[in-house]
Structure formats: structure tokens, C-alpha cells
Design a protein around this nucleic acid. Structure first.
Lengths: 381, 381
DNA sequence: ACCAGTTTCGGGAAAGTTCCCGATAGTTTT
DNA sequence: AAAACTATCGGGAACTTTCCCGAAACTGGT
């Protein structure tokens, strides 16, 4: 009753177990195991078939190699054939599959950008600058935020590496003390450029601003305005920006012969709650400061809000200077004196260096200038 | 002098032209063309070879199928073999190549997010909400901004589709009147969910807030505060949100028997410059408004700045209400009355619906509630 | 007609996975 | 002991593209 799939005979076929729910048969004559082929039903589970070069080749009765050559602008092809292929490709709306190309070349044309957050002005703007350059160069961008968590940062780096990004633009978290995950990136020779929050212990290109000069100017400005007891609400020591701005603060004090009071120097983790807590703490001191230099504008603004809620008059009783010149600084009352940094340009430069890195690996540190923008929050008239 | 590459004989070999700069030969005896193989030099242009399942298979002397089964947690495998494979995979730090998988399955595990901008509070926050859900589900995110330009939006959609994203989360530009590019997306059966700025002419899932109710409440609040000549600086008519908030504005006026003055209704393109221009225009009218309902918070804030610069007192001479409750609204002086919308949640819901869409396509419109937050900019006491 | 040289095209490997299905060996049932 | 069944593994296609290299079909020149 059952024909052998090989010799087409019936007599020697016998049952031989079940495989994956299907009856199996064995033909003694030709020593051959087989199962009955299922009737293939409506094969509609192939939803969207993108047009491939093979489709074009079949349509024109030529080989896929020729189609590929035409599309890639090779020379080894007849002008008429090329035109024919190009026309059909356009007509069929052919889109080359980047996945196949990526698999073959091990290049995805995607760069990863990893930032601590993008709720405030700074990081979104850097990203926009980077995107401007990268998309011009034909790269897509995959953005991750570490949320100021070391574990998330490690996980994100892993995820981006697993996605086989061609390069990485990174600003580390406040908690990043161990940088082994970035060493892994370097070991796999994936270009890596840090910006703003950099890793000086790694030999990688970096884009930063002149944090020291900016901080120095800011604090000197406060001194020139007559403030004498100047506090500094600083970032965590782990970040180089914190240390550089701190040094600018200290040197400015020293230059003008002002004492350094450790009570007035606070390192914190850049969260809003802590900013409020330390602002309150500073203003509650027996000898409160008459001015505060904040590590960045969001911090400065938290201080302003706390000062306002305590009835402390700005700038008369408290001068405040921030860093970064977020747009909100010009809007708040009184407007915030701050150190302007070319944020958009930082993104552009980071992207540029990353692209260069892909061509020709080299270490480059790019430093952008800062400029003090004096507004109402520090003019003690 | 030249041996045939096939029969190893010398006598019948003759020159036969040149191919790509290399001398070609022909053996009459075996009717065979050939060129001399080049001496292969140091093949060091294979930079980083990732560990593959084939490496594991070769190492253990088994087939790649078996390795794949072990790694994918299949049942058809011996427990000992699986353990052996898993151990070696861990030791070699094996990472499956997502490109190969994507090529095979036509799934990239990437979703694209397309927004008009992310300089303000709203869109970055939505994106964060969406990312929270999507990354939990194992998806990476590719973010593009159309920069309020229709052409850029079309180009971005094309780029994301070309990158073979598995789904799309979109908020359209102010200039988007033609939606053919989204029809292309739907035609290729790529899940597409709109949020905030939606396309009602397309049959797609959408996530919106109750714009009508929010606007109605806002305007009614102004009326209850005693304002009688209420202007509306609205968004472009092309956006549904504009139309809905407009309707809320109109209905609130009507309910309280206030006349509609077309002079006080301005549609604009949501750029900062135009906001300033129209704010100035409104305040320069012979009969200026005594309150303005703004389409969103950035607009409201521009109006506040213009009013301040003209010496118009808020809220005494001009009441202002915004929409969205950006953090800056609580900070500005006076604090801005605004309609709060669950922005983060909007991102979460959009992502959730997109994920559902991938499983089981269906049309769903999700509407989130709004809530009026009354602050100083509208309390005419 | 014969050969050298050029132009144009096709075949097939490679990239790394998953999955279908056949194959084998071993185990249990009749 | 044959028949029926299970557990485990290997082979190879498929996904799409690029690229190497050989093959065929030309062109001229002798």
C-alpha cells in the first residue's frame, strides 16, 4: 500500500517507528528510511518579500552577479545591460538589504551613543550635533541612556557591542569607576570616543571643553563682584570635569587671596534631590556662603529654587553661577550667570573624530573653548 | 615552460590573452583555460574574527546544528552534550551574531522612533518611556528627528525602513500634509504607531491625550478667573492636536457666552521666532487680549518673555495658560498654569501598543487623561 | 584561419544562523 | 526477534549580498 520513495516498490515497505509525530517507513529492498511528504498547503506565511537582486536577475534572465555589478557601479558591465537593470530596479523599488551586506562585511553602519540621561538640555543637544555629522556620512545612530547607573552602562555597552555597532560615542555615569567594559570595546577594536565625561585612564580620543578656564573665570567673576565666601557645589570626584572645574575654583580663590573653606566644598551625585539637600545645607550654615559656583546649570537652578523658597535674595544675598548655558538659564528669574560651552559643536566634533577613528585609529583630544555669560544672578550692584 | 593546471603537461600550453592584467594560458590537450595562481602573502586583513557556532562545533567535533540546538535551548539534545557546549560557549565568550539572525528571520529587533525634535522636555521624555518598555522586550531603538521638515521626515522614514526596523513610533511634523510615506510603511506591513501628533487619515493605532478636555478646562479656568478677552496661540491646522485644543477653546468660550474674535486666534508653526512675533502682535492690538491660551508650554513661555519685555504684568494684565506641564513651567516667574499630560506614560503606552501590533495587528486608539495645574500665571486675584 | 587581447557575463563561495528532515543507535513492545 | 518507538545528531537549504575568477563572446591583426 505504501510505495518506497526510492524504488517505487510496494512489497518491501514496512513501518519503522515514528519521527516527530509522523509515521516512518523502511524499504527492505533498497535499505531506505522515509516518511510520507506532507501535502503543502497554502504557503501564505511568507508575508513581505522584499525585492532582491535575484528577483531582478530572474526577471531579466541574467545572473545576480551582473545585477550586483550594475547596482554597485562596477566597470565590468555593458552599458545597455546596466541601464536595463537600473531601470528595472527603480521600477520594482529595489532596496538593497543592509543586513546581508552587514553580515558579509561585518559593518552595520550604525554607531552607538551612550549618555547618562537626556532629560536636560545638554545631552540631547550633543546628540543632535553628532547626528548631523553621522547621518551625513551615512550612519544611523542607536541611542542608549545609562540613567547614571554603572550596571546599566555596562549592560548598554554590551547590548550595543552585540548589535555590532561600528563605533561608540560615550559620556560615562557619575558612578563609573571601573572601566573594564570599555577595555573590552577597545580590545575588539571598535572605535570609541568619549565626550564631556571622559575616561582619562583610557587611551582614547576625547572631546571636552576648557573646564578649568571656564570655572576659573566664573569664580573670578564672583570675586570681582564682591563676593567673598564662595561655595562650590561640585560633581563627583570620579568625573574629570568635576576635578577640573574644582581646580579652576580653587585657583581663582588662591589668586585673589581668598581662603579655601572645606565646609563650602561639596561633591554630590548630580541628582535633583541631593542638589536641594546640599543647597539647603549650605544656606543653613552658621556662616553661609555669599555665593555659590555650581557644577552645571541644573544644579545652579536647584540652588536658586531653594534660595528663593528660603527667602534668600539673589544676587544681593547670594550670587550664583552655573555652567553650560542651558536655555532655561536665560529665562529664569533672575537670569543665571553661567559658563557657555559649545554643546552642539561638541557633538559634531565627537562624531568627526569617531569617523576619522574608523579610517585611521589615532588618539586625539579636542578641546572646545568656554565663555562666561554674565547675567543677573551674580551682579551684586 | 608552463604546466597545464589540469593535466600537468607542458607541451600543449599556449598563451591565451590577458585577464585583469594577468597572463592567461590555454591547454590544447585538455581544452582548459587557466591563469597562474598568485602567491598568497600574509593574510592579515581579517582583523577581528568573532567566535561563531562553527568554531564551537569544530572544537568539540560536533555539528553546528547541535551547537545551535544547545544554545537555543532545544529539546532534541543530550544533557551532557548541551552542558559541554554551554560551558565552551561561555569560556570562549561566544556572542550570537544578530546580523545573521536578522538576515534569516527578516527581523532586526530594532524599532525606529521618529520625532520632530528633542530639544524640549516633551519628546525626550516620551522616548524614555518608550525605551523603558522596548528594551525590556529585547528591542533596541533607533531615534531620528525630522526637525519639523517634511522632506527630512520622508527621508528618515525611508532610512529607517531601509534599516529594516521591526516597527515604527512616529510623531509627525507641522508640515506633514501628505502621508504617502506612511502608506508605504503600512503596505510593507511594518507596525506603525503614532503618538501625540497623529495621522487620523490613516488606519493606525494612536496614543493621544484628551486634548479637547484639557483645552476646555484651561480656557474655562481663565474665564472663571475673570478674564474675558482670551486669545489662542494655536498650532498649525494640519495637526489634529491643534484642532482638538482649538475646539476645546471655542467650546469653553461658547459655554460661557463669550464671543469668538478671529483676531485673537492665530495658527502658527511652533517655531520660537514666530511665537515671539505673534505674541508681540497680539499685545499690540488696539484691543489686546487679557489672557492667552497657548498650544503648549514652550509657546506659553515665549509669550511670557515677550509680555515681560513689554512691561505687561502677569497675571494682572495678562493671564497665560500652557499645555504639557514641562518642568520649566514650575520654575519660571510667575509659575505657569498648564495642562498636565502623562508624557512618560505616553511613551510606555505607545511602545506597548507597538509590541502588541507585532503579535497581532489591530487598530487601537489609546487616550490618556489630562489635568489642569493652576499656578501663578493665571490667578487674577 | 589563427592568435592575442578585450569586454561582458555567470558560477559559486563566503558571511553566521536557524530549521527542516533524514539518519543512526539504542530501547521497549509484541 | 521482529517491529515500533525514542533520543540524539548531522547535512544542507535558506536568508541576501559582494567578490573572485573562470568562461564565453567579441575585436582586430596577421
Amino acid at each position: 500500500m505504501i510505495k518506497c520513495a526510492k524504488c517505487r516498490q510496494i512489497d518491501f515497505v514496512q513501518k519503522s517507528g515514528i519521527v516527530r509525530g509522523k509515521q516512518r517507513y523502511f524499504c527492505k529492498a533498497c535499505d531506505y528510511h522515509f516518511t510520507l511528504p506532507e501535502v503543502v498547503e497554502n504557503r501564505k506565511n511568507k508575508p513581505r518579500h522584499q525585492v532582491t537582486i535575484i528577483d531582478i536577475a530572474n526577471e531579466l534572465g541574467i545572473s545576480k552577479s551582473t545585477v550586483s555589478r550594475a547596482l554597485r557601479g562596477h566597470t565590468d558591465i555593458h552599458e545597455g545591460t546596466r541601464k536595463m537593470i537600473l531601470d528595472l530596479a527603480q521600477q520594482l523599488e529595489y532596496q538593497p538589504n543592509p543586513l546581508a551586506n552587514a553580515l558579509l562585511k561585518s559593518r552595520t553602519n550604525i554607531v552607538g551613543i551612550l549618555v547618562p540621561e537626556f532629560r536636560h538640555y545638554f545631552f540631547p543637544t550633543v546628540i543632535m550635533g553628532a547626528q548631523e555629522i553621522l547621518s551625513k556620512a551615512g550612519y544611523n545612530v542607536m541611542i542608549c541612556q545609562s540613567d547614571e547607573s554603572y550596571e546599566t552602562e555596562v549592560a548598554n555597552v554590551k547590548a550595543l557591542m552585540n548589535s555590532r555597532v561600528d563605533g561608540l560615542l560615550v559620556s560615562v555615569t557619575t558612578q563609573t569607576n571601573n572601566v573594564d567594559h570599555f577595555r573590552t570595546v577597545l580590545r575588539k577594536e571598535v572605535p570609541l570616543v568619549f565626550f564631556n565625561r571622559v575616561c582619562p585612564e583610557l587611551d582614547t580620543p576625547q572631546v571636552i571643553v576648557d573646564d578649568y578656564a571656564g570655572a576659573f573665570q566664573a569664580v573670578e567673576h564672583l570675586i570681582q563682584q564682591g563676593y567673598r565666601r564662595i561655595a562650590h557645589l561640585a560633581g563627583p570626584v570620579s568625573l574629570l570635569v568635576s576635578r577640573l572645574r574644582m581646580k579652576g575654583y580653587l585657583d581663582a580663590l588662591q589668586k585673589h587671596g581668598l581662603p579655601v573653606d572645606n565646609e563650602l566644598i561639596i561633591h554630590y551625585d548630580l541628582t535633583e534631590e541631593k542638589a536641594r539637600i546640599y543647597a539647603n545645607y549650605l544656606l543653613s550654615l552658621a556662616q553661609p556662603p555669599d555665593a555659590i559656583f555650581a557644577i552645571n546649570d541644573p544644579t545652579a537652578i536647584e540652588i536658586m529654587l531653594v534660595a528663593k523658597s528660603r527667602g534668600v535674595k539673589i544676587p544681593q544675598e547670594l550670587g550664583i553661577v552655573g555652567f553650560s548655558n542651558d536655555p532655561i538659564s536665560a529665562i529664569i528669574e533672575p537670569p543665571l550667570t553661567t559658563v557657555e560651552q559649545p554643546v552642539w559643536e561638541m557633538g559634531r566634533q565627537a562624531a568627526r573624530i569617531l569617523l576619522e577613528q574608523m579610517e585611521n585609529p589615532h588618539i586625539e583630544t579636542y578641546q572646545l573653548p568656554t565663555r562666561l555669560v554674565v547675567r543677573g544672578s551674580s551682579v551684586n550692584c
